[in-house]
């Protein structure tokens, strides 16, 4: 019998609320460190830094210009907003397609895209394919890691830690059916996100009032932080 996917989980993100505080980024990293470095001797060695592995990234996007008047004063139309992005557990996951070993896979039961670590050879094909930069290589273990949708917390009836940690309540996570019932289709994706046509991401966005169309005239202002 052919199995069909019953449930598809996804995220909701409200860019009009997000202040870019990065609590989600840190909360995710805290849980992730427990998962991938649980056996570390924390009392003696401290908590692992895991440099460069960021499952939830907060992008600062902005633009606009300054011009000077003859009297020396300035005019400006500067804008900026934040986008907090993990993995969108896409319906057309190009990461899965790109993976040569089948390590990157989409779960039938809930649509979450995860890495089967024992199959991963660390070739980074998924990371190159994903337009959201979701797969993050663990250089020490030479395996790919990424947002797993906090599936352990879901099993306990909780929401992901990024969602629960957000002081501005800018994030939500649920089945896409429930999210659509609650938020509708949202405002469509805005920069710096790529066109949703590439991977059919399960991500509903409420746009910031300065939200720029995909490929807009602004730029990523915090490349070192994502």
């Amino acid at each position: 019998m052919k199995m069909t996917q019953q449930t598809q989980y996804g995220f909701y993100f409200d860019s009009s609320k997000c202040t870019g505080c990065k609590t989600c980024h840190i909360a995710c990293k805290d849980r992730m460190t427990g998962l991938v470095r649980a056996k570390d001797d924390v009392m003696n060695n401290g908590v692992a830094n895991l440099p460069g592995i960021i499952w939830r990234r907060v992008y600062e996007y902005g633009g606009g210009n300054w011009s000077q008047n003859v009297d020396g004063s300035f005019e400006q139309n500067v804008f900026a907003y934040y986008m907090s992005i993990g993995c969108n557990h896409c319906s057309e996951p190009v990461c899965v397609k790109a993976c040569p070993t089948g390590a990157m896979h989409k779960r039938r039961e809930d649509g979450l895209v995860q890495v089967a670590t024992e199959l991963c050879i660390g070739c980074e094909s998924c990371a190159r394919a994903c337009p959201y930069d979701a797969p993050q290589l663990d250089i020490e273990r030479k395996v790919m890691t990424k947002c797993d949708g906090c599936s352990d917390r879901l099993a306990e009836g909780k929401k992901p830690i990024c969602v629960d940690s957000c002081p501005l309540r800018a994030l939500d996570f649920d089945t896409m059916d429930n999210l659509r019932a609650k938020y509708g289709e949202g405002d469509g994706h805005i920069a710096p996100l790529p066109s949703p046509s590439i991977t059919s991401p399960n991500l509903i966005i409420k746009a910031n009032r300065n939200g720029q169309p995909v490929g807009g005239s602004g730029q990523l202002l915090n490349p070192a932080e994502v």
Partner: peptide
């Protein structure tokens, strides 16, 4: 900066990574 409280927590590597 959002990366620490005055000088407290400057020594936390996760925060140094999160807020350049």
């Amino acid at each position: 900066t959002k990366g620490r409280t005055h000088s407290s927590y400057h020594n936390v590597p996760w925060l140094r990574e999160a807020a350049e």
